[in-house]
Design a protein around this nucleic acid. Sequence first.
DNA 1: ACGAGGATAATCGTATACGATTTCCGGGAT
DNA 2: ATCCCGGAAATCGTATACGATTATCCTCGT
Lengths: 222, 222
Amino acid sequence: MQRPQEAPSKHEAVYRTIRERILDGRYGPGTRLVLSAIARDLEVSPVPVREAIRRLEAENLVTFERNVGARVNTLDDEAWEQLVEMLAVLDGYATRRAQPLIPAAAIAEAQRLNDALRRCADGPADHDEVMRLHRAFHRTIYSHADNEYLVESLDRVWDRIDASRVLVSSWPARRLSSAVDEHDDILRNLRAGDLEPAELERCARQHNLNAIIAIQGRGRLG
Amino acid sequence: MQRPQEAPSKHEAVYRTIRERILDGRYGPGTRLVLSAIARDLEVSPVPVREAIRRLEAENLVTFERNVGARVNTLDDEAWEQLVEMLAVLDGYATRRAQPLIPAAAIAEAQRLNDALRRCADGPADHDEVMRLHRAFHRTIYSHADNEYLVESLDRVWDRIDASRVLVSSWPARRLSSAVDEHDDILRNLRAGDLEPAELERCARQHNLNAIIAIQGRGRLG
DNA sequence: ACGAGGATAATCGTATACGATTTCCGGGAT
DNA sequence: ATCCCGGAAATCGTATACGATTATCCTCGT
């Protein structure tokens, strides 16, 4: 049988809609998500909305308080730092594991993204674009690590960072151009393939940790 | 006002009950979770049960198929390997970060757990007990890493491994005694504190990767 | 005996209804 | 003017109801 439309269930549609709105900032951190209001807005009953929000809760994108309701999570400085530290560990390892597998075309694509990022550094500040390019750069690499669960975890961490809308917008001006240089470095090492795997991992990890250091000025991580 | 009982919501109670049953094996891998049956069993309506299962789905403990229902996830060999690889990366880093923070009492507790594990290795096989002790050993250490999100992620990975009921039961006989020795090694390094942090991390990571190598005999990880 | 087709049962998906809890706001006492 | 209290409005939590989809099994034709 030809599946007629493969209509997603309503709860799935609601889930995707809300999630998208959180990630792109329409529902910013702290926004209250009122079940009945969303249900009216999306023209469904409150039941599938509740299911959608439960899933978002389990992904740490929203917090649901009993008899009070859901709101989009806000990351304080400490939580943000911990999240990026986690990102550094996973991305570093994924980069290491991707090295022997990544095709030349993907490295070229990453180079293209980094070049676009460099042009951003010169031109006027466009945080959303920088965010998009930076995330895309890393994903182009780590997606070639042969571990689905690792890749998925990285995607989720990035989702939370996107939702918090904080990473790039609080970078000191010169952090971006340093980051671009570090990216070039990583690409060079990926291409050459003559570096110790452990050293490549250390290099990628440190690049991510630098994002914390740039903001906090503290050096306790490493 | 004194909160009378702080009764958890039904959906929360259902969530905890199902989760517990999955983790301790009463709902083994592949078990179908029928909404109405669970609702009858726990004496609630199907609505809170659906919410509970959505959360479990988002935690990767169950898979929910449209118009078909939920079943407890089964890990094939590849997924299991990827999960343990992830565990190795996170646990290794968490151990490194715990080293300067962990109190002597916690190290002593971990030693006690490892000694109990050694006694298991001599006596008759009791997989559940070995599993419990092994997980407790690692948690005693990594819980002192100063990164809540990292610790939570490790707990979740262990939950999935517990639910899959596969780690210890398929270890070759002598793997356990090697693991016990490696644990001693980690504790020694934690106490001494004279090892390079990076070296401690490598050591803890390798210990976890050895669990994969022991089962698969392949050496592609490292 | 075996496979195709259809009736029947089991189960899911969502809407609606309503009681329970919390939040908000205004009036009265100090 | 300020604080406390009570009631109304908003919102959540869960039960029930029922149509939609899928699975099961029996019957019939070959």
